[in-house]
Write a protein that binds this DNA or RNA. Structure first.
Lengths: 215, 215, 215, 215
DNA sequence: TATGAATGAGACTTCATTCAT
DNA sequence: GATGAATGAAGTCTCATTCAT
């Protein structure tokens, strides 16, 4: 997760991407998404006009159509970028072997971190109703995969004894709820950094799974 | 919480409310909100036209303007109804004395339950960007009050020894995250009823606060 | 003209007219027109809603329909009331015999005065395009009658030597222009009273007709 | 005034302005105003829909928003164009020195002429209540400037002996009333041309100022 | 590839008018 | 005669999208 900045932060030079005529199309696509995600998160999907996105990029509206079929595709791409981040982390964790609880902990850490990143936030905070049925279904599918991964690690942890038995579905919901909610309260200028938050949740949420009641 | 149906479910007879010309204005306002909330949750604020709401009520669009100044006021009222539910429960809990952890448990139970109810869901699932700055501020204020209540009960629990010390802010975020997330995955036809979910979270989320690590 | 208040000023008790159930219908009609004219002049025909008129009368909107078929009828009635005032004065003047110039002077005085009165102002200041073709035609007919009267008195004055020859049509336009314009600049709290203005114009506008160039 | 057609009459080719996609934006703005003014004068501001204006230009409604923020701005621009015409003439006259009465005469001539032109008519005939408070204030300011100019020339004329003493304010009102009224009765197919009307009023209205009573 | 201009479609809102009481 | 409630009919404005250059 430490290198989870697979998707680079382009804030500093979003505007300049379009300056040079000859740039990889993908690079420009990404610049659009960065600008769009930021605006979507700040003002919502509907209150963000294509003009706003274009302006943020120093381009005019129709130029965007060279990179995306329509506004909804941009929204979808934001979602997918968020999921790509998650999936990348998930496959890393999947490859690193270990006890169930350790893997769950790693997943929590990675996921929490992503929830502090623009595209991760998009997954939770943007209005899903704007996606087409097909897109919606794809996103739902992704979500389910992630949820399943949480569940399977938790089950694994219970099986290998690294966690105490519990209602897996509900516990997973509790954990993912806590994590998704990060995207709602995290502030980059807050008391804790992304990494600290991630570490904190990795610890605290797994600890409660491996403990015994006092009283 | 057992009687938290302060706001009655009118699904069964929404349509009929507007049948009779003379009827308590408040009753009709509520019928509008019930219809609106349901549609907002199902299709999002923007994809719900006033015509849709009117149609659901067996009325024409302009009739809605007898009850609300504009579409955004409807959205705001939905939010406020959700908050009213929370506040009502909070004041009940505040009056019933008890250990910190018990009060926190009661709050969790009540809040989780509300998250399975239409207007409670509105608080989490509807696009807040559609509110006016003033409305937005009011909602934010309400949210903060609730958050503060969670924190204060947790602090109380730690102080009176019913809970182990912890990072109060983060733990509160974890708890409220789990609870708010309920509004996203709850299905009325799911395996667990609202009440069961509420009870489950009341137990599991407080248990982890009063326990000692095994290993 | 001193008794030209044929149409009484009801400002002081407009609201009270509707208090008593049993009042002559005409009296109430007039109260509506008084309120309407005042509002029309203040905010224009379109920006005045029937609700505004009703409110000014302490009644509700549908009540107005007992007195007028629709909003345009109210406007038309305001116009007609203005014309009634003019016609009443015109017939008085017609009966009082005298030199052409004297009769013209009397007409100017009367007309100028009416232009400082609510219903007189309506003739000049309200948007005529809101009238139906039929109503419009009737108003135009009235206007023409008035214009003709001005012209005929002027012609008479030239014929009987009380005025010097001139382009009758243009001179009439000049005079009626000056007079109609009064309705645009007159302020009841201005330096000159209605009567003073009327007297002044009666003198000054006729004087210029009976004079000889100096140089 | 002889070249007061600073604002060209585009009637003949209004429709064609929008034929070619690329054309000076100002030119199109003006075409919009020409079409709008004509319709406003013919049917009133309210009865003229944006669709009507667009149709007159061979464009669709939203296209108009490329040139004006909203319908009221169009109205305001019509007013301003009228005032621009007046101001241009006023500054020409101001520069040409001469006796007070001569300057007044020139002003009358110019103003009367403008009152026969579309945008001049707008100043008198369109419903001023549709302007925003700010716009209204600006127009009022302009009007006052013009009125002041009339007054100052008249005062000058009295001072330099080219006119006889009189009540300046009232006389100015009389003159401007006569002139403004032109916009109400002038017909382009009438007996007198714009120029003839202007010349006539320039003579007749000033003559009466410099004469002595016969009787 | 990028743009200025134009458009189609739609949504909110307003309000005169009517209806049932 | 008066009212509360509802409606039909518009009209303005917005904006994603397309076209022509």
């Amino acid at each position: 997760m430490q290198d989870s900045q697979a998707i680079p932060e382009m804030e500093t030079n979003i505007g300049s991407i379009f300056d040079t005529r000859h740039r990889a199309k993908d690079e420009k696509r990404l610049a659009v998404l960065n600008a769009a995600a930021k605006l979507f998160l700040a003002h919502g999907f509907h209150r963000t006009r294509l003009d706003d996105i274009a302006e943020a990029l120093g381009v005019t509206k129709p130029a965007l159509y060279n990179y995306f079929k329509n506004k909804h595709e941009i929204l979808f791409a934001c979602h997918m970028l968020g999921h790509d981040m998650i999936e990348e982390e998930m496959s890393k964790i999947e490859m690193a072997k270990g006890r169930g609880l350790d893997r769950l902990k790693a997943l929590i850490r990675a996921y929490a971190y992503i929830m502090t990143q623009k595209f991760g936030m998009c997954l939770v905070r943007l209005d899903e109703h704007e996606l087409s049925p097909k897109q919606s279904a794809e996103i739902a599918h992704c979500r389910r995969l992630v949820n399943d991964r949480f569940e399977s690690y938790l089950r694994l942890a219970i099986d290998d004894g690294s966690a105490l038995p519990c209602n897996v579905k509900m516990t997973t919901f509790a954990i993912t709820g806590s994590l998704n909610w990060v995207s709602r309260w995290y502030r980059s200028d807050g008391a804790m950094s992304s990494k600290e938050i991630a570490d904190h949740f990795a610890e605290s949420l797994t600890q409660s799974l491996s403990v015994r009641s006092v009283n």
